[in-house]
Amino acid sequence: MIKFNAVHKWFKSLHVLNDINLSVQQGEVVVVCGPSGSGKSTLIRTINQLEPIDKGSLIVDGMDLCDKKTDINRLRAEVGFVFQQFNLYPHLSVLNNITLAPTKIRKTPRKDAEEQAMALLERVGLANKRDSYPSQLSGGQQQRVAIARALAMKPKIMLFDEPTSALDPEMIGEVLAVMQDLARSGMTMVCVTHEMGFAREVADRVVFMDHGVILEEAEPEEFFRNPQHDRAKQFLKQLLSPMH
């Protein structure tokens, strides 16, 4: 479904992605973790070309992102993206946030789009918020709407870029529950997250990055029990007990 082959990317002189090789199969859930500045957000943003790559090849859903002829807009319609800061449209109601893309891109009739949106809101537990505006919702609710918005395009892949990092602790659970439900439904997912509980429960694989390099790639149990790399050991130790 997603295949990175010797991918490199630079921000000026900073080598943010260094020889990335990674493939994600259909239905797989991959968690990417690592210290801040390790390139994990950049990695996930290359998948729908919010960040173009500089070298190597990247195939997503059979489309070559480096090929000039690839219609990036069409690709993005097939790939849902959930942001750390939600990025809901503040001038549109919850319902219109969700129906905008389907009505404009898929040309779904208004009525059908609204029905689908309602089904999605039902799924994320926010059916009663259809006419609210984003500013009237809590962070957790906004993020669940953002997930519903991404799902409205019926994507084949869902990308999550630290979806719970901007949330109050008591709201993290509701978002993770939605993500877990999504993973169980067989969605192909790549999640940048520090929620190790989620990684352990849901992920098929954990990828650990530092300084633009993938240092480890393992099944969650294996990764948490027996990390190979010193940097990964240190990272996990910090994550589990930040005071030390």
Partner: peptide, 18 residues
């Protein structure tokens, strides 16, 4: 307008002009 708004919109498949 924050850049995230454009990013969110194009991520759902909207063309840049949309």
């Amino acid at each position: 307008i924050p850049k995230g708004q454009t990013e969110a919109a194009i991520s759902t498949g909207l063309k840049p002009w949309q």
